[in-house]
């Protein structure tokens, strides 16, 4: 459980990361077919959602199911303002809208603990989805909108940038005293408060920070789908998938979250092409299997393996 078992060398993570970035940024878009770039964009999207989700929910153990709301509001900002604003401005506004929404959610729900927080965040995302739908049906009288489309390579670079910013944010928060304080909140809020941490402010701020890049990613990805409606933008899957991906890879490790998001996105991709009819069913089975057999995720598996190895060596 603890984030302190087996600490990897401090320089390893940034080094590996910058290596991957160089490859992704410079090499790949020139040589790969459009299809691969599209699926890379999907992977980027889920990395942003998963790592962002884990910034707050990982250490504090407050399971948020509001990711769909934060992602979706980014999508809608881009859909509504995409044809009047430049691409970059739409992305920034998407992130801002998401941040403000999260601030509001955090302020209203900070007293809720455990299950109540989870149900509240889920209910809120659904309320937003249904309200937007109702608005479109009854007020604007058209469901869904067209989004100004942007070419794949531009989306690719935008998403790559958002992924990097997300990772940087997650890394700095995790390794700062605030990251340690968030971890302490997950252990005992009362004790954390009593050693001088402004628990409520920290919780709300971390929650809002974690929403920024979800919104930005939503605003970016919207341009790729060309048509969106409330069921697409606020799909509850966007709330559940990051949680599963984080669990699958390991909630307490950023590299675990990246691996989890990448692996499950690729898996979904593969299932969709190979078994289009059984795709959802197989996916459901895999979700249940992950929760059942990998409760600590792949990172946990690695730790268990190394513990086991030590155990054998000692003998």
């Amino acid at each position: 459980m603890s984030s302190t078992n087996n600490p990897a060398p401090k320089w390893l993570f940034p080094l590996v990361l910058s290596f991957i970035i160089i490859i992704l940024a410079a090499v790949i878009p020139r040589f790969l077919p459009p299809y691969t770039i599209i699926s890379l964009n999907d992977i980027f999207m889920y990395i942003v959602l998963t790592v962002s989700w884990a910034v707050f929910s990982g250490p504090t153990r407050y399971i948020s199911l509001a990711s769909a709301a934060f992602f979706g509001i980014g999508i809608y900002v881009s859909a509504v303002l995409g044809n009047v604003l430049p691409f970059l401005a739409a992305i920034a506004l998407g992130g801002l809208a998401s941040f403000l929404l999260a601030l509001l959610v955090g302020l209203s729900s900070l007293r809720l603990r455990g299950m109540y927080f989870t149900i509240f965040t889920f209910g809120l995302s659904e309320l937003i989805r249904h309200s937007v739908l109702w608005w479109e049906v009854n007020i604007t009288r058209t469901v869904g909108r067209l989004v100004v489309s942007v070419d794949n390579i531009t989306v690719y670079y935008a998403m790559l940038t958002i992924v990097l910013l997300t990772l940087a944010m997650a890394y700095f928060i995790k390794n700062s005293k605030y990251g340690l304080a968030l971890l302490a909140i997950g252990e005992s809020e009362e004790a954390t408060d009593h050693i001088g941490v402004n628990v409520n402010a920290l919780k709300i701020l971390a929650f809002a920070m974690s929403a920024v890049f979800m919104g930005a990613a939503g605003a970016t990805m919207a341009t790729r789908w060309t048509y969106i409606d409330p069921s697409i933008a606020f799909n509850p899957l966007f709330s559940f998938m990051p949680v599963l991906m984080a669990i699958f890879g390991g909630v307490h490790r950023i590299y675990g979250q990246i691996i989890g998001a990448t692996a499950l996105t690729l898996l979904a991709d593969m299932l969709l092409t190979k078994f289009p009819y059984y795709y959802n069913l197989l996916y459901g089975i895999i979700l249940v299997a992950v929760i059942l057999f990998l409760p600590q995720g792949l990172a946990g598996l690695r730790e268990r393996m190394s513990k086991w190895r030590k155990h054998v060596l000692v003998k």
């Binding site: 459980m1 603890s2 302190t4 971890l183 302490a184 252990e187 009362e190 004790a191």
Partner: peptide, 11 residues
């Protein structure tokens, strides 16, 4: 605290 409230899984 009467019942110890440490951050149990931290070092």
């Amino acid at each position: 605290f009467q019942l110890v409230k440490l951050f149990g899984s931290m070092t």
